[in-house]
Each structure stands twice: as structure tokens, then as C-alpha cells.
Amino acid sequence: MSSSNQSMRGKLHLLFVRHGETQDNIDRLMQGHRDTNLTEKGVREAHVLADKLRGQHIDSVYHSPLRRIVQTIEPLLSDRPGVQVHADEDLKGQGLGELEGCSYDAIDMGNPRSADGQPGVELFDDFVRRLKRSFARIVGAEAPQVQQQDRTVVIATHGVGITSLFKALESSPSCQGFNPPLATRGPQAFEVRWTDSDDVARLLVSQPANLPVTDGLLDWSAISGQPFLIERWGKEEKAI
């Protein structure tokens, strides 16, 4: 493809959002795959998120099937009947086995592998591989659909998922070894432990046609350079 044709093609925008407040958040309990509901405040936060994205065109939404995520995106979808919506089991947070429902103090929350080895816990490295598998499907499905117009996709998942995927794309210290650095950060991207419910983390692919997609999947082993730009991530005052 000529450089002039490439410049005429649209971009792929990936918007990452997390759920609103749950009672477990208030009680500082680990949720993992616990299927919790939003509190009244969490529902209000979901409407704040929808208002924040009111003028944003959205082509499709991929989401964790857990109730707190489904409830969070309901206001966002209420006036978008034509948006394609896909539930994806791989967008759940890390499975925490017998630690689910336990206090945050039961593990070192600053160490992503501190729960490894506990009964029923999904190994952190397996969790990151699962996130990458979901991301490969999403990008593999969406990137080929970008033509002259931009395409915007919402990925509704859990705070630990957003942070872990972004760290894996950057190959930052806690997520080294999954791949070489594939993403750079913009000036509004601040590494956080998890995003707030009203944050919208934004990942940009400026040349989606250049991504290696095979049989509907992003081919991680064939990616060259750093095609992903983390445009926005968390709040500066909460940066790690």
C-alpha cells in the first residue's frame, strides 16, 4: 500500500473502562470472579461514564460478562441500539480462588504475583496470557474493518486487567517476558494500579492496516515496532 493510501485510512481507537463501585470495593475485599453488583453509587458512576462518552461515536463493545461490568455499560448502551456488543469470558479479572471475598490485606496488593500458589488462584502469568488472547481476538476482528473512517471500540473489563495489559504492552518490569515493548505512552498516560470508574483509558493504533492479522487474530510474533500508543491512562495524582 502506498504511503498516500495509508495516510487516507482511519485509525483504530480502543477505549478501556472498568466497573463502578461494588460493596466489595467498600469493604476492601478481593472480588476476582465473584459476581457482584454495583452499589447505588456505582450505578451513578456508570451514568457519569456514559455522560463522559455521550458525544463519542462507538462501533462495538467487548465486555467481561460479570454483572458489575454489565451494569456499568448499560447506560452507555441505552441510546446506542446499533452498537455490536460481545461478551468475552477472557475479559474477566484474575481468578483468585479461595482468596475471593478475603481482605486486601491477605496479599501484597503491590506485587501482581503475590497470590500465586494460593488455593484455586489463577497464576498471574496465565491471567496476562488470557488478556493477550482476548486482545488478539478484538484487534484481529476490528482492525480489518477500519477503512477511511476511524473505528472506536470500547473494552469494558476490570481495573487489574487494564493495568496488566498495558504493562504487558509496554513490557514494564512486572510484565516483562510476554513480548518486547509494543506500546509507547503519551503525556496523558500515567501508570496506575487500577483505573477509577470514571476514567477512560485510551489506546490508539494509527495504522491498523499494518498490524499482522491472521485468521481473525492479531499475530503477536509478527508485530514490528511499537504500533500502540497509550494516549490516556489513569490520573496523574494516582500514578505509581
Rank of each mutant, 00 (worst) to 15 (best):
D90V: 00
D105I: 04
D88N: 13
V85I: 03
E74L: 08
C102A: 11
R137I: 11
D126E: 14
D126P: 14
S114I: 09
E98T: 12
T72D: 12
V85R: 09
R129D: 15
V83A: 10
S114K: 01
D105W: 07
R80Y: 02
V128L: 08
G93D: 15
V128K: 03
D125W: 05
D79L: 13
S114Q: 00
F135C: 12
S103W: 05
D88Y: 01
R113S: 09
G95L: 09
S114W: 00
E122G: 04
E100R: 00
L99F: 00
A136V: 13
L91T: 04
Y104F: 15
R80N: 07
R113P: 06
Q94W: 00
G82F: 15
R133K: 14
S103K: 11
G140T: 11
A115K: 04
S114M: 02
D126T: 10
L77T: 06
P75A: 08
S78R: 14
P119N: 02
Q118P: 07
P81R: 03
P119T: 08
P75G: 07
D116G: 05
R113H: 09
S78Q: 10
G140C: 11
D90R: 15
L91V: 08
G110E: 14
L123Y: 13
G95V: 03
I138H: 14
I107N: 02
V121R: 03
G101Q: 06
D108Y: 00
G93N: 12
V128T: 06
F135Q: 12
S114R: 04
E100M: 02
G95R: 05
K132R: 15
R113L: 06
V121E: 08
R130C: 09
Q118L: 12
G97Y: 00
S114P: 06
Q84P: 04
G110M: 13
G97L: 00
G97C: 05
V83C: 10
L131G: 09
Q84L: 14
D125Y: 04
V139K: 11
L96I: 00
N111V: 11
L76D: 07
P81Y: 04
E122S: 07
T72V: 08
V83W: 09
I107S: 01
V83P: 04
I107Q: 02
L96Q: 01
V128Y: 06
R130T: 00
G97F: 02
P119H: 09
I138W: 12
A141I: 09
R129T: 14
R129E: 15
L99N: 06
K132T: 10
L91Q: 07
P81F: 04
L96W: 04
L123N: 12
F127E: 05
D108E: 03
T72H: 07
Q94A: 07
V83H: 10
A115P: 08
G117C: 05
G140Y: 13
P75K: 02
H86G: 11
P75I: 04
I107F: 02
L76A: 08
E89I: 11
D105C: 01
E89N: 14
A87Y: 05
M109T: 15
K132P: 07
D88Q: 13
G101V: 05
L91F: 08
G95W: 05
R133M: 09
P81W: 07
V85P: 08
R130L: 01
A87Q: 10
K132N: 14
